[in-house]
Simulated scan of single mutants.
Amino acid sequence: MVSASDLLDIDGEFSDRELALRETVREFVDRRIRPGIAGWFEEARFPVELIPELAELGLLGMHLSGYGCAGRTAVEYGLAAQELEAGDSGIRTFVSVQGSLAMSAIAKWGSEVQKATWLPRMARGDAIGCFGLTEPSAGSDPAAMRTTARREGDAWVLDGTKRWIGLASIADVAVIWARTEEGVRGFLVPTETPGFSATPITGKLAMRASIQCDVALDGVRLPESAVLPEGRGLRAAFSCLDEARFGIAWGAIGAARDSFDTALAYAQERTQFGRPIAGFQLTQAKFVDMALEIQKAQLVALRLGRAKDAGRLEPHMISFAKLNNTRVAIDVARTARTVLGGNGVTLDLSPMRHASNLEAVRTYEGTDEVHTLVLGERITGLRAFR
């Protein structure tokens, strides 16, 4: 079903193959995520039972080719992310951490042995990955990381801490970025390695149906074969973040669209002063404003996806889309909540849950401030970070 927010018939810009994938993922979300998401969010539980089903749909590492991965286009990946986040940001985040961060790091920077060892298992959902870059004192400034890796004979020894690491407590392998005498390097750390520990972060007010952890690395000893041979410097890590940011730019639209659709259905049924509240001018103005912003964000995402598929995507374009679309999504979710009145503050209706999640989505993979400065540098030619 086409959303009433599609005032420009943007659906007409997608191919039959793209729309078929979207409908497949949308049906999965309707059948498997919507019925349980309020409970998972309230319980602060990630539904691990969905992992085999997500793998069966070919959604894990879906934009990668070979090694059992689906080899889908960027636009197809974006549409899948959009539908998953219409269900909940936490579910889309799982697919993003697994595919766009952990699997992408191995695919981009790993050895042939590392790829063959991990990627097929991860695509099947038989192995889970996480991506350790952010630290307690190095969020927006990863160059300030304190995690170190030092050579000790034929081995590497890792020490340090990471924070807000998605999936770490259920992961089988962690992609860890650490300082070495040669600069920042990436390492594959099997999570059963002595000295590795992951502790889920509790008390979250957002992304409650997902897992984020504190990770400790205490004398973690690894063989030379654990090094990502091509993963040198922060640029290697950032290339994986760009993959995740691409998915966020699409996914946020899903949360916005679901908020819009939920509020519209409610407003058409909710009667006050003798008629549906959808018939009042102020309410209609809210829906118009939301629809305009959703449509513009969808066009931004589509432009991003087509550019990526054509090999013309540049990092500042991803910053543009991540910054714009998360801003739009959170504003739409908040406006949709106002249409719902008091009923909108419960888990019976999705907009406030989406708004809560989007506070985290807007922050991770680069805050508004970071992406603003990326774009500012692109416009002015002057770097304002330091």
Rank of each mutant, 00 (worst) to 15 (best):
Q212A: 09
F131A: 01
R185H: 09
A244K: 08
T338A: 10
L7A: 12
R235W: 07
L234Y: 08
R34Q: 13
R362A: 14
R163A: 15
V374Y: 05
L57V: 11
R257Y: 08
R150A: 14
W164M: 11
A70Y: 03
A321H: 04
Q82N: 07
V173D: 00
D289K: 11
L19E: 12
K296R: 15
V157E: 04
T24H: 13
T363K: 11
E365N: 09
E369R: 12
A168M: 08
V300D: 04
T262I: 10
R34H: 12
A297Y: 04
A80T: 02
G129K: 01
Q298N: 10
T271Q: 13
D141I: 09
R45T: 05
T147E: 03
E42D: 15
T283P: 02
G132P: 06
F28Q: 02
A310F: 06
V288C: 10
A278R: 08
P194T: 01
G61L: 05
L64R: 00
E182L: 13
R121K: 08
T363F: 14
L241C: 06
E182F: 09
T191V: 02
P276R: 04
P315I: 07
L304S: 05
R270P: 03
R306A: 09
G39Q: 15
G342T: 09
T380Q: 11
H63V: 13
D6A: 08
R232V: 14
